[in-house]
């Protein structure tokens, strides 16, 4: 028994345990989020949303998931089989890794490392590769257009995103999410969202764009590209993209919570609850956006990034550098 406990304290064992937990969290979270999304959409649209499967339709996403799993997997006749099926896996796998450095609570440290932020940024950058492969492997013109859009979009929005993340990182002097979150306090006026609202705003806009959510859901662009990059996917092929989208939403929301909203810190409640609360508030905001706005056009999307967000983020970054250097001079 003691040996078993000792084994659990071993970093590798802890990592495995944490991975299992993360899997469970992602799966559970996807179900909850789909339900939340549909309920919020229903509320916005004057209708009840899912209602009949389980209490208040809570089990509807589960049933949908089972339905997706039961569906036939169709590979397009002239598609590239390997790339076509690698793409959904590639969309989902990086998302799991990105969960590891998230600061859920001061005490949980599954992957103690001082470069957590870099890890997340690097692996979330992989996501666009999967969309690209999906579009190419499908041998479908709509998918290809969607893939082309996703690459241009990801490149455009990664720049301001990185800049405003750096602006925060420079203020704290660390790339460890625990350190950055810990650097802020429990109260809103100690958060970077208040101290540096411009970076927070840019981060939110970029986060919506990076996760391909409306009004920036151009790679899917249902009314233009039928389904965009996932036009040809059926069953769990689509399901994995779908889960990856929700997993990515949670990641960006978690990063935003850690960078700008003080992470797990808050009065009265245990840290994990504060963190989840902050994540879900941001998620609610993202969902709310989707059901309110029309989709922007592609050139408008790029203009927003290159002509507005990038210069603003540069300005913000420069400001942060100046503030930090003045402070260090004292």
């Amino acid at each position: 028994m003691n040996a078993l406990l000792l084994l659990l304290t071993h970093p590798a064992a802890r990592l495995v345990l944490w991975l299992v937990l993360v899997f469970a969290f992602i799966g559970f979270n996807a179900i909850i989020l789909v339900w939340v999304e549909r309920k919020v959409a229903g509320y916005v649209q004057l209708r009840p949303g899912p209602l009949h499967v389980g209490p208040q339709g809570l089990l509807q996403p589960l049933v949908d998931g089972i339905k997706l799993m039961g569906k036939q997997l169709v590979t397009p006749a002239q598609g590239d089989k390997v790339l076509f099926w690698a793409a959904p896996l590639l969309a989902f796998a990086p998302a799991i890794v990105c969960f590891l450095p998230l600061p859920f609570d001061a005490r949980f440290k599954p992957l103690p490392m001082n470069l957590g932020l870099v890890l997340i940024l690097a692996f979330s950058g992989l996501g666009v590769l999967s969309l690209c492969l999906a579009g190419w492997g499908s041998n479908n013109k709509w998918s290809l257009l969607g893939a082309a859009r996703s690459v241009a979009q990801a490149v455009a929005y990664e720049v301001p995103l990185l800049l405003c993340v750096l602006a925060v990182a420079i203020c704290t002097g660390s790339l460890d999410l625990y350190a950055i979150a810990g650097h802020q306090g429990a109260w809103p006026w100690q958060w970077y969202a208040v101290k540096n609202p411009l970076a927070f705003f840019i981060f939110l806009v970029c986060a919506v764009a990076e996760t391909n959510r409306a009004p920036f859901d151009l790679p899917e662009g249902e009314s233009e590209l039928t389904g965009g990059f996932h036009t040809e996917y059926s069953g769990m092929g689509f399901g994995l993209f779908f889960m990856a989208e929700y997993a990515n939403m949670v990641i960006v929301a978690a990063v935003a919570a850690a960078l700008f909203l003080g992470g797990w810190q808050g009065p009265f409640l245990p840290g994990i609850w504060w963190f989840l609360l902050k994540i879900y508030s941001i998620l609610f905001f993202i969902i709310w956006l989707r059901w309110t706005f029309p989709r922007v056009r592609f050139d408008q999307l790029l203009n927003i990034s290159w002509k507005w967000l990038t210069p603003l983020a540069l300005f913000d970054f420069a400001l942060a550098v100046i503030v930090v250097s003045i402070r260090s001079m004292k």
């Binding site: 649209q45 409306a214 009004p215 009314s223 309110t292 706005f293």
Partner: peptide, 9 residues
């Protein structure tokens, strides 16, 4: 144009 809500209103 990608706005899902107005049609229900």
């Amino acid at each position: 144009l990608g706005a899902f809500t107005p049609i229900l209103y």
